[in-house]
Simulated assay, not measured.
Amino acid sequence: MALKDGVELGEQIAELDAKTAKNWSTDGGQGDWETTQLPDRPVIPKRDPIVSGIPAIGELSGVEPTAGGFVSSAKLNAGGYAITDLTPAEKALAQQVTDGLDKSGALTEELVESVSQRQGLKSLEGGKYGSNNGFDHVYMSADGKSVIVLDSKQITGGGSFSRDANEVVQMSDSWVEKVLGRLDKSSEAYKAVDKARENGSLVKGVAGVDRSSGQLIIAKLK
């Protein structure tokens, strides 16, 4: 009985060795174990980066100034939004504007420029002519797909856009065309704005400090 059990045990061991040998590579036992083919994994599409702040102005509905060039605070607040992630230095600039210390508008422009570049927009040179005339700010989006022209304002009950002798309102399409005619055609700003007008990727907007709240408000313009 013991002999029979020993024979059966030997046969089982031999069978196990044979199965093991099949799984072992044929290079003399020095290779790797055979690998199991895994099913293809689904390809997860890459998400577009989340856009917020001033770079997201193109996603807003446009606000249209009156024939006289005025946009009320109610329209600006309804169609735009406040930039809430100001740095301490930017908050200090906004406070100076709120306190009425920005007589020339330079502090407001400095604030908007700081926020825009910090949020990833590329500032393009050459958008002004003469004595500080033309575009306050010209930006290229981070992906290069859109051009943003911004006007800086101090908002007191609303924002007013100037009109020339021909009743052309600042930031209107006609005004943009007129400004382009005055710019250096070799400048970054001219080339970008002119091309964006042609392909429909130009975004116009206003950014300003609401002196009643101290907030930096942005809105898209039609």
Rank of each mutant, 00 (worst) to 15 (best):
residue 5 D to G: 15
residue 5 D to E: 12
residue 7 V to S: 06
residue 8 E to S: 12
residue 9 L to T: 12
residue 10 G to V: 02
residue 14 A to V: 11
residue 14 A to F: 09
residue 15 E to L: 14
residue 19 K to V: 09
residue 25 S to N: 14
residue 25 S to W: 04
residue 30 Q to R: 14
residue 37 Q to P: 15
residue 39 P to F: 07
residue 39 P to W: 03
residue 49 P to K: 10
residue 50 I to P: 02
residue 52 S to H: 12
residue 53 G to K: 10
residue 54 I to Q: 04
residue 57 I to Q: 06
residue 58 G to S: 12
residue 59 E to A: 15
residue 60 L to F: 15
residue 60 L to Q: 09
residue 61 S to R: 11
residue 65 P to W: 03
residue 66 T to A: 10
residue 72 S to A: 13
residue 78 A to Q: 13
residue 78 A to H: 10
residue 78 A to S: 14
residue 80 G to Y: 07
residue 82 A to T: 13
residue 84 T to F: 00
residue 84 T to G: 06
residue 88 P to Y: 03
residue 89 A to N: 14
residue 90 E to L: 06
residue 90 E to W: 07
residue 91 K to F: 07
residue 91 K to W: 06
residue 94 A to S: 11
residue 96 Q to C: 04
residue 97 V to E: 06
residue 97 V to Y: 08
residue 105 G to C: 06
residue 108 T to N: 04
residue 110 E to G: 11
residue 111 L to W: 06
residue 111 L to P: 03
residue 112 V to P: 00
residue 114 S to R: 02
residue 121 L to K: 03
residue 121 L to C: 05
residue 121 L to H: 03
residue 122 K to S: 12
residue 133 N to R: 14
residue 135 F to A: 09
residue 136 D to N: 12
residue 138 V to A: 10
residue 143 D to S: 12
residue 144 G to F: 11
residue 145 K to M: 13
residue 146 S to A: 14
residue 148 I to S: 02
residue 154 Q to N: 12
residue 155 I to K: 04
residue 159 G to N: 04
residue 163 R to P: 00
residue 165 A to G: 14
residue 166 N to W: 05
residue 166 N to L: 11
residue 168 V to P: 04
residue 169 V to R: 15
residue 170 Q to C: 10
residue 173 D to Q: 13
residue 175 W to N: 09
residue 177 E to Y: 01
residue 177 E to S: 15
residue 177 E to H: 08
residue 182 R to V: 00
residue 184 D to V: 00
residue 186 S to Y: 00
residue 187 S to Q: 06
residue 188 E to C: 04
residue 189 A to W: 01
residue 190 Y to F: 15
residue 190 Y to E: 03
residue 193 V to T: 03
residue 195 K to H: 13
residue 205 G to F: 08
residue 211 R to W: 00
residue 213 S to I: 01
residue 213 S to T: 15
residue 214 G to F: 01
residue 216 L to Q: 06
residue 218 I to T: 02
residue 219 A to P: 05
residue 220 K to Q: 09
residue 221 L to S: 03
residue 221 L to W: 02
